[in-house]
Design a protein around this nucleic acid. Sequence first.
DNA 1: CTTATTACCTAGTATAGCTAGGTATGAAAG
DNA 2: CTTTCATACCTAGCTATACTAGGTAATAAG
Lengths: 107, 107
Amino acid sequence: MKGEALKGHLDLLILAVLQAGPLHGYAAIEALRRNSGGVFNLPEGTIYPALHRLELGGLLASQWSEHEGRRRRVYRLTRSGRAALSCDIEQWATFARAVAAVVGATG
Amino acid sequence: MKGEALKGHLDLLILAVLQAGPLHGYAAIEALRRNSGGVFNLPEGTIYPALHRLELGGLLASQWSEHEGRRRRVYRLTRSGRAALSCDIEQWATFARAVAAVVGATG
DNA sequence: CTTATTACCTAGTATAGCTAGGTATGAAAG
DNA sequence: CTTTCATACCTAGCTATACTAGGTAATAAG
């Protein structure tokens, strides 16, 4: 993936990956990589600030937990988060359709 | 369209809209609006600098012309531009598929 | 005792699209 | 004739956001 492709779509991806159930940051990175077939291999410096931003915005809620001596911060979608996800999915569909229309247009 | 959705995809859109034939900047804005069904209503401050950047990069070539007393700068795809467009289309397909996979994944 | 993996964090940087302002012509409205 | 609207171009500066590059810390393997 080239540089700026994600801009404006990262929130959608994070909310989407948390739709299946709560995850901690590191696991979210792996889930995104796996679910995208390796296309989204996001650095931690991308994910962690985004998770904080989303929590601050009330779309996620977090809880510290312990697993084999390592602390984890587990995030889950809030009600607002689920609503935002629906909205973002629709917006994405609109965007993707519009791009396809422009690319496909021959005249 | 919300804020940053276009980031990293604008070049594709501009190259794509010029695929059908040369256009000047203002006409490119209208073509993008029309072809996208009104989704891409881009301000001039977005298009003009992008056209300049693409020309500087050798993907576009421009030529001044006159039409009913108004000067126009008409842009056309170069050979490199056509190659870049093919590449961008493929990249877009990869990106869109990956987003769809993440959004569609339920587990 | 070093390296790798897991797991978190953030200050600063880069970039690209957008805002908001400007110039100028021709046509229509008043 | 003056104002407004549409056409047509331009750019300095703002802002948002993903990323770079650095840091901390625990466990396990070599």
